[in-house]
Design a binder for these strands. Structure first.
Length: 487
RNA sequence: GGAGAGGUGGCAGAGUGGUUGAAUGCACCGCACUCGAAAUGCGGCAUGGGUGCAAGCCCAUCGGGGGUUCAAAUCCCUCCCUCUCCGCCA
């Protein structure tokens, strides 16, 4: 969420930042320009409506106070006169209130659908091709094999410990079941990442809910103000029950209003029917988190931290769920792109001054676990057009996969500035200054466990089809050195 | 799932229709005292929005939404959350 004041006062900066997201094309500039005009129009409309509404309320409040005084002074005539005036004011209120509410909702909706502004140093580009490899962050050299390296699913299936068909029978495409030593290897990776971040990098381990409400998804900008059907994650449903409940509630409320002497028609209008219907639509449904970024970051929602608590560094090992709606046909074979996968996530909450350095630190934490596993990788700075909605700057770590003969994303570290903090109302109180400021938030994978399993299988595979266990994982594998076909 | 009690500022905790944006305590900030500190005394201290060059003024906010009233932290409805008891359960 952007600050409307920023857009009001520095519209040129805003247009420039937004245009860069679109690769600075003429088209992008034009669209940003149009958007600013729309936002400024709404903002002016809003302020005008608020001002007239507040003037009316102000007069009403003053008159009400006077009524109290007049009554105390037993001046009934004056009281009657003032009550008549207030009655007149109250006739004008509903329309103005409605206008304020409508315009505010439109502005809010427009603002919450605008992506974050890229930092100035982020390379310009409008797609994956514009990403730039980071100097001095390449690690390791792809090994040479005396045979043609196989892909991870060929290895796993041949070992008899990775089965896509069994998974498909119960859950459909994009699910997998790992068994035996391979299942343990995946668990070992998760444990190893978590232990490293807590013991060596100062993160606190958190075991958060992975089913969350709309507000939490909105807070981390997974969700705009209202969800749309393209949104790539899953949710639970509870529609029938919620609808029945809502009907019951509305009926009760209307009955109560009629009991107060209000005619049935306006009673129905006055019952919070709209809210009830909305409630029914939402029901008790919850979202399955696409990443632990959501619950970890929402840990600070609606709170004011003290500066001493910052930076807050949190890590979690969780399941993640993604619908992958926009990825039809991509990575259909294997474990690269699944509806359900395990990931270790890191989240940092910092002061505005510290967030840029924190991004570098977070990147190095993610790199550290790959180095311990001796997996070759490179680091890409994502260009303006390839970054996620809420990010100001993103590094992707791409791990080498000999079976695919390609570098593939295994971690993504982003700094979001105050973008998520605004949406969550997450602030801190600076030592020097008493008014709270929005915190900055960062998130990064440390790293994706499913993809790490893929990388280990492909990098540590041997000609006879077995897989060597990386030294760093030995303590987690109960002494197992090699993963072989089960007898 | 059933019954009951609650939700007030950074924290604790008063406040059941009228000048209460909210007593008091703690925390925090400034000043005084002190070589310094503690203790003590005095003063300050909510957030968001509108308006104004500014000082300031105005509006909203006592879990969220709606209603009653000239006027709501206070009365009514509803949702959410917390706690206690019962039931069920990993």
């Amino acid at each position: 969420m952007h600050d409307i004041k920023w857009i009001r006062e520095q519209p040129a900066d805003f247009v420039a930042a937004l245009s860069r997201r679109g690769g600075d094309s003429e088209d992008a500039k034009m669209r940003a320009d149009l958007l600013v005009k729309k936002l400024q129009g709404l903002d002016e409309q809003r302020r005008a409506a608020v001002t007239s509404l507040e003037n009316l309320l102000s007069r009403r409040n003053a008159a009400s106070k006077e009524i109290g005084q007049a009554k105390a002074a037993k001046d009934d005539a004056r009281a009657q006169e003032l009550m008549a005036e207030v009655a007149k004011i109250k006739e004008q209120l509903p329309d103005l209130e409605h206008e304020v509410r409508t315009v505010e909702a439109m502005l809010d909706d427009a603002l919450s659908n605008i992506p974050n502004a890229p930092l100035s140093e982020v390379p310009l580009g409008d797609g994956e091709a514009g990403n730039v490899e980071r100097e001095d962050h390449r690690f390791g050299t792809p090994r040479t094999y005396g045979f043609t390296p196989r892909q991870h699913f060929e290895i796993g299936e041949a070992l008899g410990q990775m089965d896509f068909e069994k998974a498909a029978r119960m859950s459909g495409a994009r699910f997998v079941v790992n068994m035996g030593p391979l299942a343990r290897l995946e668990r070992a990776l998760g444990q190893f990442f978590l232990d490293t971040h807590t013991a060596e990098h100062g993160y606190m381990e958190v075991n958060p809910p992975i089913l969350v409400r709309d507000e939490a998804m909105y807070g981390t900008a997974q969700l705009p103000k209202f969800e749309n059907d393209q949104f790539p994650t899953f949710r639970t449903e509870d529609f029938d029950h919620a609808l029945a409940q809502a009907q019951e509630n509305v009926a009760e409320q209307v009955a109560a209003l009629i009991g107060q002497g209000i005619d049935p028609k306006s009673a129905l209008e006055k019952s919070n029917l709209a809210a009830q219907v909305r409630k029914a639509q939402i029901g008790n449904r919850l979202w399955l988190v696409p990443t632990a970024e959501v619950p970890l970051t929402n840990l600070v929602r609606e709170s004011i931290l003290s500066e001493e608590e910052l930076p807050l560094r949190l890590t979690a090992l969780t399941q993640c769920f993604r619908a992958e709606a926009g990825a039809a046909g991509r990575d259909t074979r294997g474990m690269i792109r699944q509806h359900q996968f395990t990931k270790v996530e890191m989240v940092s909450v910092t002061t505005p001054e510290a967030s840029s350095d924190e991004l570098e630190r977070m990147l190095s934490c993610a790199e550290a676990v790959l180095k311990k596993l001796d997996l070759p990788f490179r680091v890409m700075t994502l260009c303006t057009g390839d970054m996620g909605f809420g990010s100001r700057k993103t590094y992707d770590i791409e791990v080498w996969l000999p079976g695919q003969n390609a570098y593939r994303e295994i971690s993504s570290c982003s700094v979001c500035g105050d973008f998520q903090a605004r949406r969550m109302n997450a602030r801190y109180r600076p030592k020097a200054d008493k008014t709270p400021r929005f915190v900055h938030t960062l998130n990064g994978s440390g790293v994706a466990v499913g993809r790490a399993l893929v990388a280990v299988l492909e990098n540590y595979q041997q000609e006879n089809g077995t897989v060597a266990v990386p030294d760093a994982l030995a303590p987690y594998m109960g002494g197992l050195k090699v993963i072989e076909k089960l007898s």
